[in-house]
Structure formats: structure tokens, C-alpha cells
């Protein structure tokens, strides 16, 4: 399941460099924490885990729309603050047995800087 999810959700379309938007430095986000980036598409939650990996998901749990940025982050997962659904940070897919998906957005680190693209990753754009 996990392996499959990774394959589906990693951005496969090449994203042009111009689309990357600098949103700040990694140190702006606490370890195992998240910040919100406000965009015309709605809020996007930007996560940083203990290993300093960064992830970006639409700030809405697929269950009841809870703000994922407010959840507890562990490993590569966030637990939604409203009803404790677990959502995979890489893909936005709810951890089984729950079902659903939050749109994930391409994000990358360039040194200290965090860049975000507002084109949702493949496989989750519809959600």
C-alpha cells in the first residue's frame, strides 16, 4: 500500500522552475511542526518532520475538513486535530483503514530555502 502510494503521488509531470515560489526558510517551521501558506487556492499546510523533510498538503483533512497544519506530526504522517485521522505527508492519502486524500503540492528545499508550487501533484488534483 505504502509503496504503491508513493509511486502514484510523486510528481511525475515536470514542473517548470518559474512555478516554484519561495515561501520562507526551513527554520521558520518547527521540527515536527507545520505552517500555513495562504494562497488563492486556499490554505496550504507546509510540514517539517524530525528528519527535516518538508511536505505540502492542502490544509483540509479529507474526512471533515480539519486543518492538517494543526495536527501532531510523526514520521511522515500527520494526525488530523479534529478526529485523529492519519494522513500520509508525502501523498495526502489517509492511512488505512481510513479512506480519502488531501491534495499534495510539490515542495522542495534549496539549501535553507523552501519552495512551493501551486500545481497539485498528479493523482490528487481532483480532490
Amino acid at each position: 500500500m505504502n509503496n504503491l502510494a508513493k509511486k502514484v503521488a510523486m510528481p511525475t509531470k515536470p514542473i517548470k522552475f518559474e512555478q516554484w515560489i519561495e515561501v520562507g526558510a526551513i527554520s521558520d517551521i518547527p521540527k515536527d511542526g507545520a505552517r500555513v501558506v495562504k494562497t488563492p487556492l486556499g490554505d496550504i499546510a507546509v510540514f517539517r518532520n524530525l528528519q527535516d523533510e518538508v511536505f505540502a498538503l492542502r490544509d483540509k483533512c479529507p474526512h471533515k475538513g480539519g486543518p492538517l497544519s494543526q495536527g501532531i506530526i510523526y514520521g511522515r504522517t500527520v494526525a488530523c486535530p479534529l478526529h485523529n485521522w492519519s494522513i500520509a505527508l508525502e501523498t495526502g492519502i489517509a492511512v488505512a483503514p481510513d479512506e480519502g486524500c488531501a491534495a499534495s503540492f510539490p515542495i522542495r528545499l534549496d539549501g535553507e530555502k523552501v519552495f512551493l508550487s501551486l500545481t497539485p501533484s498528479d493523482g490528487s488534483a481532483d480532490h
Partner: peptide, 10 residues
């Protein structure tokens, strides 16, 4: 918020 992105998106 970490950042506020204004305007239209691609």
C-alpha cells in the same frame, strides 16, 4: 501564516 501568496495561479 508562513507566507501569503497573492494573485492568480497558473
Amino acid at each position: 501564516p508562513m507566507k501569503v501568496i497573492e494573485g492568480q495561479t497558473a
